[in-house]
């Protein structure tokens, strides 16, 4: 038996590689499945809290404030919204449809009471709080049950939203 490459080095072993790999059939559950099936048709579904009427998007099936189930009722939302806050990203990341540097934004969709984190295709010097934006979708024939159907948001020609309309989401 000839010595292995590791043996030939004669250096002590000081680090142990312990890779972990587990296979799952991941289940989205009722609420996320409803959301994903809708987005495959270009619809954005939120859910309304029965206690205070706030609309959660995306919904995880229960109100994280009140701990009550949202049931089966869904609310269709616009793909237009308001930028609540933003950040300029200069380090690379995976699965982003925009080149560096790009803008990440918290968008309050019209009709929603929770923010959506996404990216914005705009000049860095133009982005600002209150800016009105709309989703840019992939070509319809490429839609799947995935949030990746929305590539990014883009500014639209509407007056800025009033601060009062989004201040609680900052």
């Amino acid at each position: 038996m000839s010595p292995s490459e590791a043996e030939k080095t004669n250096q002590p072993v000081t680090v142990l590689a312990c890779p972990i790999s587990l296979d799952y059939a991941y289940s989205a559950g009722q609420s996320a499945s409803r959301f994903l099936r809708a987005i495959a048709e270009g619809k954005l579904l939120g859910q309304r809290c029965p206690v205070d009427g706030r609309v959660y998007f995306p919904s995880r099936g229960a109100c994280p404030m009140h701990g009550v189930t949202f049931g089966d009722d869904a609310v269709e939302l616009s793909d237009k919204g308001t930028i609540v806050t933003f950040s300029i990203v200069r380090v690379p990341s995976q699965n982003i449809a925009l080149p560096l540097p790009y803008i990440t934004v918290n968008v309050l969709l019209d009709g929603a009471d929770t923010i959506l984190i996404h990216v914005l295709d705009a000049k860095l010097e133009d982005v600002h709080m209150g800016m009105r934006v709309q989703a840019v979708w992939k070509p319809k024939e490429e839609w799947t049950t995935s949030t990746a159907n929305i590539l990014y948001f883009r500014p639209i020609d509407e007056p800025d939203a009033k601060y009062e309309s989004y201040k609680e989401h900052i």
Binding site: S27, A28, G29, Q30, S31, A32, R60, G61, A62, H66, G67, V68, T69
Partner: peptide, 26 residues
Amino acid sequence: REPDRNEIEILIPVIQALREQTGLSS
């Protein structure tokens, strides 16, 4: 195998039933 519900959706009715059983809220 719960085909329809995720972990949290399995838990929600259990907590809801406990609130009803004890009369306590969160």
